[in-house]
Design a protein around this nucleic acid. Structure first.
Lengths: 136, 136
DNA sequence: CTTGACCCTGTAGTGGCTATAGGGTGCATA
DNA sequence: TATGCACCCTATAGCCACTACAGGGTCAAG
C-alpha cells in the first residue's frame, strides 16, 4: 500500500501520516525502488488505533503509552485503564466547564435588542465579569 | 499602574499582557523615565474585557472585532450579537461532540476487568472503531 | 513526449500563550 | 557605599498536533 492509499483507507492526511512517523508513533515502513513508502496491514491497524484514540481526545503521549502496552501483551492492563479513566475525567471536566460557559453566553446573547454598540448589553457584559452569575 | 500591578489586578500574566500589546489587542501604554509601561483605568478595563471574553472562549480575532465595536459606539450592535451567537453555537457543538465522546469513552473504560494487556478490552476497543456505538 | 497524478524532503506557519536568556532600574538594608 | 532583591525591559524559542508550502522526483496514459 502506498501512502495515498493508506491515507484514503484510514481518513488520515498524508502529511499527518508522515508526521506520525517522524515523531515515532508509526514505524518507518519499507521503501520501494522509487523511495516510496510501502505499508502493510499492521501499519494500517496501528494507524487506525492512533486515529481512533485521537478522535477520542487522547494526547499523542497518552497514545504512545497505549501503543507501548499494546506492543507488550504480557504487561498489566491496569495502566491502559488508568490512562483512559483519567482522560474520561478530563472530558467530564471539560463538559462541565463548557456548560457553565454556555449558560453565561446564552444569558449574554439573549440581552441584545438591536441598536447602537454604545448601548449594547452584549459588549457591556463582556467588559464586566460582575454581571455573570456562575464562575467560568 | 506598572505592569505587575495590572497583572495582579486582572489575574493576567505579565507575558500575556505584553503579548496582547504586541498583537495589537491592547494599545501601547505610556512609559516612565525608566522605560517601564504605565497603565491607567482605561487599559485595565480593556484588559478585563479581553480576559473575560477569552474565558468565555472567544478567539483573539473575535475579540478584536468586539473591541472594535466597543470603540465605535455609533455602530450597529448587530455585529456583536452575531459574533456572540455564532460562538454560542460553536460551544453547543463542542458540548454535543464531547458528550458523544464521553459516552464512547465510558463504555470503553467500563470494560476493563484487570489482567494482561494482551486480553485488554480497552486496547482492543481503541484499535477497532467498529466497536463504537455512536459517531464521534 | 507531455500531461497529470502521485510521491519525496525540509521547513515554516497556525493559536494563544509560556518560558528563557541576558540585561537594566529602584529601593531598602548592612 | 555596596549589595541584594524585586521588579522591569527586549528578543527569541518552545508548546501541541497538525497543516501548508516550496522545490523536486516517479510513473503510467494518451
Amino acid at each position: 500500500m502506498k501512502i495515498g492509499e493508506l491515507s484514503r483507507a484510514t481518513g488520515t492526511k498524508i502529511e499527518t501520516i508522515r508526521y506520525y512517523e517522524r515523531i515515532g508513533l508509526l514505524p518507518a515502513p519499507a521503501r520501494t525502488a522509487a523511495n516510496y513508502r510501502s505499508y502493510g496491514g499492521a501499519h494500517r491497524a496501528r494507524l487506525a488505533f492512533v486515529r481512533h484514540s485521537r478522535e477520542l481526545g487522547f494526547t499523542i503521549e497518552e497514545i504512545r503509552s497505549l501503543l507501548d502496552l499494546s506492543d507488550h501483551p504480557d504487561r498489566d492492563c491496569g495502566e491502559a485503564d488508568r490512562i483512559a479513566s483519567l482522560h474520561l475525567e478530563q472530558v467530564e471536566g471539560k463538559i462541565a466547564q463548557l456548560t457553565l460557559l454556555h449558560d453565561e453566553l446564552s444569558r449574554i446573547v439573549g440581552r441584545c435588542r438591536g441598536g447602537l454598540a454604545g448601548d449594547c448589553r452584549v459588549i457591556e457584559a463582556l467588559g464586566d465579569h460582575a454581571q455573570c452569575r456562575g464562575t467560568h
